[in-house]
């Protein structure tokens, strides 16, 4: 292996190709860097900051940082993991993430990353924002309580579906997901359950209606193995996790 095409991730040499980010190369080599807004099918976004790594004392988001030869990348020091826990705690308290009652529990990337990093309970004060559920679409519901503003649905609708159904409105702490339709309701938009945007949400914000808890406890995505082994929610979207008729 030529040192020209490798960097060190926690002391392990990772090979990369021209144009790779640190995240691209790490994932391809089987090394897990926690992340939420990153999905290899879409252009890097760098907004959730969960994938930050240390390079020469500087924190960068690994999903946007180009890989280069000779880098020494810290992905696992206690300080770094604590930073990630803090970020995850903020995500949990900014929305209403009630895992015990959420149908996505056990198959949620936010929950899985929290478990992976050891973030078991937020210590910040909960915001308890007043948010609603939009169930106006016949096939899909949006629970805005659980949105983490990863913009994967925005990117999927814009770049793959070419519908621009979703956007982020507001600024700073007031940022929120909006639906592009006359009423602001999903049911009045061009959205379809077959859209890419219906299948990229890493949390329980965009979900098929009427299915709920059809997947039994014990066979949900992250029930048996951690996210570092199982991978992202989106990577398993083609798996049918809801059909219990034939089980």
């Amino acid at each position: 292996m030529s040192s020209k095409n490798t960097f060190m991730l926690d002391g392990v040499a990772i090979e990369f190709s021209e144009g790779d980010t640190i995240m691209d190369a790490a994932l391809r080599s089987g090394s897990y860097i926690p992340h939420l807004c990153h999905n290899p099918e879409f252009r890097p976004h760098g907004s959730c900051r969960v994938c930050v790594v240390n390079i020469n004392g500087r924190q960068v988001s690994s999903c946007t940082q180009p890989a280069s030869a000779g880098l020494e990348v810290d992905n696992s020091s206690e300080d770094l993991v604590q930073e990630r826990r803090n970020l995850l705690q903020m995500l949990f308290v900014e929305g209403n993430h009630v895992c015990p009652g959420c149908e996505k529990s056990g198959a949620c990337q936010l929950q899985a990353v929290a478990y992976y990093t050891g973030m078991l309970s937020p210590q910040y004060t909960h915001f308890f924002p007043q948010r609603s559920v939009d169930a106006s679409h016949p096939d899909t519901a949006i629970d805005f309580n659980r949105c983490i503003l990863c913009e994967l649905c925005v990117r999927a609708s814009r770049d793959v579906d070419h519908k621009d159904v979703f956007s982020i409105s507001g600024r700073g702490i007031g940022s929120h997901l909006v639906v592009n339709s006359p009423s602001g309701k999903l049911g009045d938009s061009a959205f379809a359950a077959t859209d890419k945007a219906a299948h990229v949400c890493p949390v329980g914000a965009i979900l098929p209606k009427h299915r709920g808890y059809e997947q039994p406890i014990g066979s949900r995505l992250y029930d048996r193995s951690p996210i570092s082994i199982v991978g992202d929610v989106a990577a398993h979207e083609s798996d049918d996790q809801g059909d219990t008729h034939g089980r």
């Binding site: 149908e103 519901a141 709920g212 808890y213």
Partner: peptide
């Protein structure tokens, strides 16, 4: 109130 019906069996058992 305001929650989807399919959540009810899991929510109210709490």
């Amino acid at each position: 109130q305001g929650r989807p019906y399919w959540e009810l069996p899991v929510l109210v058992q709490r």
